[in-house]
Amino acid sequence: MKLKVNQQDRSYEGDPQMPLMWYLRDELGLTGTKFGCGTGLCGACTVHVDGKAARACVTPMADLSGKSVTTIEGLSADGNHPVQKAWRSANVPQCGYCQPGQIMNAAALIAANKNPSDAQILEGMQGNICRCGCYQRIFAAIKTAAKEA
């Protein structure tokens, strides 16, 4: 089966039930997609599939034939996507482990809605846990990024 990962063509012949997360992390070495819960509950593994946010830990490889996957490593060539920039200027991260997932989710949210309301931001980010508790800054960074995107 064929898919694209960060614009590169890939073919995959393994277990079709294996979640995308393990393919990215173990086979491609794209470890920016984090393992947090494995059950779709925390958002640490968020990637884009055809531009939409998806939890890689509950997306089986079987669903990805002909699809295009973008990971945090492929979000922007230079790491300067408006969301990444906003994250840095708001000093969002603490341990940083949840942040690639947060950023990918936020980037998809803004791509789908250029001008999200406060409620839409909170609703859209509900699935991404930050155990360090950076939520206040995540919220502020998304507002900044939405203005600049």
């Binding site: 992390r25 470890t31 920016g32 984090k34 490593e73 000093n91 991260p93 940083g96 482990y97 950023i103």
Partner: peptide, 21 residues
């Protein structure tokens, strides 16, 4: 002074134990 690992964290290139290969 900003968190030293800020750029790596926001680009997904920061390495945690789960990421070691």
């Amino acid at each position: 002074v900003q968190l030293y690992d800020m750029r790596d964290i926001t680009m997904g290139t920061a390495t945690y134990a789960q990421d070691v290969h």
